[in-house]
Design a protein around this nucleic acid. Structure first.
Lengths: 354, 354
DNA sequence: CTGAAAGCGCTTACAG
DNA sequence: CTGAAAGCGCTTACAG
């Protein structure tokens, strides 16, 4: 639709044309100014009851609904926040979104999803300016400088599990501690030859989990061999089959996420390997599925939904702050670290307690 | 930020104020008109190389990024589609979103998520006007008239698993056929007393699945007792425990979705009931988890991701059509029915074949 | 309490 | 090829 309508009949109202009624249509029908219609709909200023009645009547008659786009341009507020995710595979992101929605719904904020299919989509980030009030970004595989280059300037942002962005609020998972706890637990259960299925080499979470696993293995005097996976079930399956076949010696497997752990677990069981008696298995994330497989999977737990909710809350605070301070930078609170804890279940041997 | 900036120094450019540079800033720095800047950025019309160079230089210098909100107001196109979902629990919605994103990303469309927490949120639907180009709505628990009342008029829409909306494109799952296939399979495996864990009474999918189950049970001469669940694991657990305790007589359980079936399955196993020997179990949806539990769950499969992708593709076609026809109604293609198929796995007895 | 007007940041016929 | 101007549909100081 061209901005001008030179060729439409001058008397035709948008409502007549099948398009939506505008605030001008309502004003005309109600016999008042557009300013008054606006006031009635926003309900801040006082308007006389009679005025309100007439406007509401006209609006109802025309089926008028304010145009959110125009509104946000005028008010410099969209009511939406952008969510940038690396991928949508698996329950991790489903849980994360659920938590984000919980918080966003409560604040009447929309969630605009942008998925970075291994790098592609980065250029759409900048285009989010004017479409969202802020961004929650999760991009564990991206170089922080590259990411910074594509971020729209001056937009509030919270970074989740990314390489830290200076000047922004970063929420990080303590991957090292979580992985170390899992490996220490395996070693305490008697494991001597631990296989670690890592995430992709470029992934920050993967790097940190691997480092934590290596440190704990060294500490416990166990050997740790690393096989690179891709966070998908199939790479776990492959390792499980090699272990079952005897090609890969292991009395324990620690995977960098649950889906790979489950892949390994299922493969081991299929080949008659007893878990945890012959080979213990542990994962990372503690997705809902972890307790449903059998034996139930020991995993490093993070409250994913809570993390998502927290990120949205932080972002909302940042947006409100920027709005208040009106000019320029919002105060970005201190970075936050999420500390995971180990959920011991049936795929590992419980160690003595007291 | 007030629309006018009466109190800011007249010489201050937005860029200087920490805010974003606008097209006017770029035009001024490049010494050209805003129209030309617009042309360079949209790349449709021809512009001289020298002009392009100057504009691009100025834009780079100012860190200019076009304002999507203003753009969409001008062009009457947002580049986003709204996704309205009843809830985010479980893998079903994760899969659905994944499919939608696959298609939306390919078309460079954003996905604006709106979750209807049992009814709440309906009033935000209308507010989507001007924020999205169209809507994919999934609301199996909503009365079609109520839904119609809240839908923004004149916005393209595809309805997924809703009570059919006249004049719109509806995509429906053939729930009756799917449920009937599952129950027929259970009966063929020898089941005589089947317990059906239904979805909530107000849910259309639930109603149809129940009807299909009842028809098939009657056909096969098996009894079917219905216990109302809520699509969550816990309601399946409860039924599983009653069956294990002998309070509820059953040689087979058919749940209206997989999470309830898995709840029942886990409860039965925990209490030492052999599946499928003593009690067979079947679910509906065939979420990825279904094949990971053990024994692996027999389930009525629908390609959830494909369904989501298809809905987005249909919506995109509808939007393009409306844009082409310029005035008024888009042609909404014929309704579509998704036909599920039964995935037989280990929780049911395989019946003879040939 | 209400209205006229300017402004939000773009795009695009229209006329050079 | 380029610029001036009108327009997208709202909101909000400003002046009654």
């Amino acid at each position: 639709m061209p901005p001008a309508r030179p060729d439409s009949a001058p008397a035709a109202t948008p409502a007549m044309r099948g398009a939506h009624a505008t605030i001008h249509d309502v004003a005309r029908v109600a016999g008042v100014s557009v300013a008054s219609v606006s006031r009635v709909f926003n309900g801040r200023d006082h308007v006389r009851a009679e005025m309100r009645r007439r406007v509401e009547e006209a609006a109802a008659q025309l089926g008028y609904v304010p145009h959110a786009g125009a509104r946000s341009l005028s008010m410099a507020r969209t009511g939406a926040i952008g969510v940038v995710l690396p991928d949508l595979h698996g329950e991790f992101f489903s849980e994360l979104l659920r938590g984000m929605d919980r918080e966003a719904s409560a604040r009447r904020l929309g969630l605009l999803l942008t998925v970075l299919h291994d790098g592609r989509g980065l250029d759409t980030l900048a285009a989010l300016r004017g479409q969202v009030d802020g961004l929650v970004v999760m991009a564990p595989e991206l170089d922080p400088d590259v990411l910074a280059r594509y971020m729209p300037r001056g937009l509030a942002a919270v970074f989740l599990a990314c390489a830290p962005q200076v000047g922004s609020l970063n929420m990080r998972i303590d991957n090292r501690a979580g992985a170390a706890a899992a490996v220490a637990h395996l070693a305490a259960g008697g494991a001597k030859r631990i296989v670690h299925i890592s995430g992709p080499a470029g992934n920050l979470d993967a790097q940190e989990r691997r480092a934590g696993a290596e440190a704990a293995a060294a500490e416990a005097g166990a050997t740790l061999s690393v096989i690179e996976g891709d966070f998908l079930e199939a790479s776990g399956t492959m390792v499980g089959e090699r272990v079952a076949a005897g090609t890969l010696a292991a009395d324990a497997i620690f995977a960098a996420n649950d889906m790979m752990a489950i892949g390994a677990l299922v493969a081991l069981k299929r080949h008659g390997v007893a878990v945890p008696e012959q080979v213990a298995v542990a994962g990372f994330d503690d997705i809902p599925l972890a307790r449903l497989v059998s034996p139930a999977l020991t995993s490093v737990a993070i409250d994913i939904a809570a993390m998502g909710a927290r990120a949205v809350a932080q972002l909302a605070a940042q947006i409100a702050g920027a709005r208040e301070a009106s000019s320029g930078e919002a105060s970005t609170g201190a970075d936050e670290v999420i500390v995971p804890h180990l959920m011991v279940r049936e795929t590992t041997r419980e160690t003595d307690r007291g």
